[in-house]
């Protein structure tokens, strides 16, 4: 493509920021529970890109690189051992009724995000990537640095857990309305 040679690095950086900062921030916010932390993580990710991005040989992997870096920075900021307790979700959750779109629409975005935050950590990141972004499963596995089979099983469990939390939230809202 013409113009490659005279392309300014800062414009390339700005183009990347324009394209990905919103998705990265939303991923960070869902992980970290905090606007300030999410801003820091997003900024840090682009800072690292500006410093190390030219090491990425396969330029089609920029998006995955950014999400992987953000997730690693998030993990780095936490004490992994204490933050990743082994969580077993009971098989009984398989029997939950389906989650209809009407039910989801009864809650506002903040309530849905609050439910996502309550999903235990090993399951939360796959859930967020599953819903928020258009990453393939192979890319999600790469971002989380786990095998694809683990992604699929965490997703199944995480989705059930999210479903359980959303059902709980909508039923408590309903109870509050009846009480009034």
């Amino acid at each position: 493509m013409s113009g490659k040679a005279d392309r300014l690095p800062e414009l390339e950086f700005e183009g990347l920021v324009n394209r990905y900062y919103a998705g990265l921030y939303q991923f960070a916010y869902s992980l970290s529970h905090s606007e300030a932390d999410a801003c820091d993580l997003t900024q840090q990710t682009f800072y690292l890109w500006a410093r190390k991005g030219d090491q990425l040989r396969d330029r089609s992997k920029v998006k995955t690189w950014l999400f992987t870096t953000l997730y690693r920075e998030f993990l780095k900021g936490r004490r992994r051992a204490s933050r990743f307790p082994h969580v077993e979700l009971g098989e009984v959750e398989n029997e939950l009724p389906g989650l209809s779109a009407n039910l989801v629409d009864r809650l506002d975005a903040a309530a849905i995000i609050a439910c996502v935050r309550e999903v235990e950590e090993p399951y939360r990141a796959p859930i967020i990537l599953f819903y928020l972004e258009d990453h393939s499963y192979a890319e999600i596995a790469q971002i989380l640095d786990v095998p694809m089979g683990t992604v699929m099983s965490r997703l199944s469990r995480g989705r059930r857990r999210l479903q359980q939390l959303i059902l709980k939230t909508t039923s408590s809202d309903k109870e509050r309305t009846i009480e009034r």
């Binding site: 493509m1 490659k4 390339e12 991005g53 030219d54 990425l56 330029r59 089609s60 992997k61 920029v62």
Partner: peptide, 8 residues
Amino acid sequence: ETPVIAEN
């Protein structure tokens, strides 16, 4: 060469 960003 200046790197090319995908999805152009």
